[in-house]
Amino acid sequence: MTDPVIAARRLAFAFPRQAPLFHDVSFTLAPGEILTLLGPNGVGKSTLLACLTGRLTASAGEVTVTGHPLHQITTRELARQLALVPQDYRSGADLTVEEFVLTGRAPYHLPFSGPSGEDYRLVSAELARLDLLPLAHRKLRQLSGGQAQLVAIARALVQHPRCLLLDEPMAALDLGRQQALLTLLLKLRQQGVAIIITTHLPNHALILGGQTGLFFPDGHFTVGASKQVMTSASLSTLYQTNLKVFFAAALGRWICEPTS
C-alpha cells in the first residue's frame, strides 16, 4: 500500500464559545483515491477543508500531509502538495483570467521572482483543456459564475497538487459542465491525484466511487466505501428527507433520488 497523501486523525473543530461543529473525523487518502463529503448546509464541510489546508487550526486531532503533521510544513511546501478550489472564488483583484490562473504557479517561484515563459505555457495548456482559452485575456469579474468557477479550477490544477480539494465545485456549473468536471476528476484520479470534494448531489458521490464521508446534523461523521455508507436509510437521516438509493437499469449505475 502506498503512503497516504493526506490523513486526518480524530479531527474536531469548534468556533470560540460555540458547540463543536464536528468531532472525531478520521480518514486516509492514498494517491488516486477520491473522498466525497456529503452533508446538509452548515455542518462544517468547508470548515473541514479549511482545517485540512491549514487556514483554520483544528481544536483537536491531527492532519498529516505526506506523513508530516500540518504545522511542520511551510506554507510554500504545503501549496505544492494541496490545492484548494474555494467556494467563494471571486477575487479581490481586477485580474485577467490568465493573470489569475498564473497565481497558481506561485508555490514554484523563488522568493522575489515571478512567472516564467514556461508558466505561461502551462497556464495556456490548462485553459485549453477546460475550453477557457478564448477567455484568457478577459477580466475575471466579467465572467459568468460558471466560467469563474472553471477558472478557479484551472488555477488549482496548474498548481500540480498531489491532493486537490474542491468545495462545491458543481454549484455554479450547468449539467454539461458538471459531467465534464466529473470526467476530468476521474481522469486526474487515474493520474494519481488524490481528490477531496464536497457536493450537495449524492449522485456525484456514486459516480465518483471511492470513499464517501457523511456529516450528520448531530456532528457525527462516518466514512467508508461509497456504496457501503450511502444507503437509503443513512442518506434519509443525513438530509432529513425521504431518499432512495437504487440501481437504475437504464443508466447502468446506482442513483439516489427523493421518494416523494
Partner: peptide, 8 residues
C-alpha cells in the same frame, strides 16, 4: 487565496 498559493 494567498495562503493556498504558498504565501504566508
Amino acid at each position: 487565496n494567498s495562503r493556498t498559493s504558498g504565501i504566508n
